[in-house]
Design a protein around this nucleic acid. Structure first.
Lengths: 208, 208
DNA sequence: TTGCATACTGTTCAAATGTACAGTATATTT
DNA sequence: AAATATACTGTACATTTGAACAGTATGCAA
């Protein structure tokens, strides 16, 4: 999509709005646009806004301060963005959902075409309990949020405030949390409800 | 940076601001926050905003409508770019440098803060010759370009038009290309110069 | 107890802001 | 020449909104 249908002056106005939004985090007011572009009347801006809205580039939210919505995805950065950022979870505060702000240690950028979908987050692996499936100490694992677990899935469970990766196995009516390393014993659960599943393993990132 | 210093209520307010900004493109007004969170007084919000500002999460722009700037990098649309794209190498055409355009199958987005530096490219692993070090069939490995190899390094070598990953070992004046899987025999080289080293292993990305 | 920080309600006022009314000017089209 | 779309100025007014004042309540530490 190009901006070709806008007149030069309308483009100036539109660009100013986009730039202001990228700089400050919110759209400009009518008067800020006027001042920024050297107009002496706020009404001039209004007129332009109306025309730009007619052409479909923005939506004017009547009565709202700074009520300009940019309808097309015209932020300067990320014209075509192949990346997405997911939170990297550190220690898990008791009682909080795993992706609560308290737990976020930073953000990891992923390749969108590799890791699709919603509800992703990342976790740094401590220990060698999953070396059997190629997940090593220090690896970052990518998790998709999920409250339940299917038989055989590798899931993140919250144990004593730590998010740990285990294979979820149902057998003979019992539930096991299995570490993919013979040196670690399985954790046997009386019932599936006694643990909190936070998500399902979808990827690994390792740096040497 | 962690967000642990915010009280639960302050987090509700902060999250609401971020969400509103991501939904509409601009921050909410004090009254919109009050309504959204069920407060009856705008002043309650103001009080929270002041405390959140003190803790450094936002900046309040005095007198400006919707004048809330989110100082930390908590916008969904990343203000600054944490990603970099590296070529994904497919089959290697004989005689061409490994990252020649002919060989490029696509691009992979990496996290800049994890994979720093120049000369990176990616390779899809075929086979299970490196399972011993947690690299599985189908994994994408991240490689840094490099013509030489040190003893013990894992490097990409071009063998018969295929880029393959091997550990480079010098012992007793001989050079071995070692697969980290007992099922594969070492390749013994008469001299180091008889093979072409393309780069050194720096990372792994896996999708389940 | 006495603070003290947090978490609120309710009201008021002034500044910021959207919006309408009334014009002017300059091209381009009919 | 008349009509039309664009590009403006200038002013006024009603809302929206930030910001201040005056309180209440609660849990927690000194």
């Amino acid at each position: 999509m190009t901006l070709s249908e806008l007149t030069p002056e309308q483009q100036r106005v539109f660009s100013f709005i986009v730039k202001h939004r990228d700089d400050t985090g919110f759209p400009p007011t009518v008067r800020e646009i006027a001042q920024g572009l050297g107009y002496r009347s706020p009404n001039n801006v209004r007129q332009h806004l109306r025309l730009i809205e007619q052409k479909g580039y923005i939506r004017i939210l009547a009565g709202k301060a700074r009520g300009i919505e940019i309808t097309a995805g015209f932020s300067m950065e990320a014209a075509d963005d192949h990346s997405c950022e997911v939170p990297l979870i550190g220690n898990v505060a008791a009682g909080k959902p795993i992706t609560a702000i308290e737990n976020i240690d930073g953000y990891v950028t992923l390749d969108k075409s590799i890791f699709r979908g919603e509800g992703l987050f990342a976790l740094r692996i401590k220990g060698d309990s999953m070396t059997g499936m190629g997940i090593l100490d220090g690896d970052i694992v990518v998790i998709r949020k999920k409250q339940s677990a299917e038989n055989g899935e590798v899931v993140v469970v919250i144990i004593d405030g730590d998010a740990t990766l285990k294979r979820f196995i149902k057998k003979d009516g019992k539930v096991f949390l299995h570490a993919e390393n013979p040196a670690y014993p399985d954790i046997v659960l009386s019932s599936a409800s006694s643990i909190q599943v936070a998500g399902k393993l979808v990827g690994v990132i390792r740096k040497y």
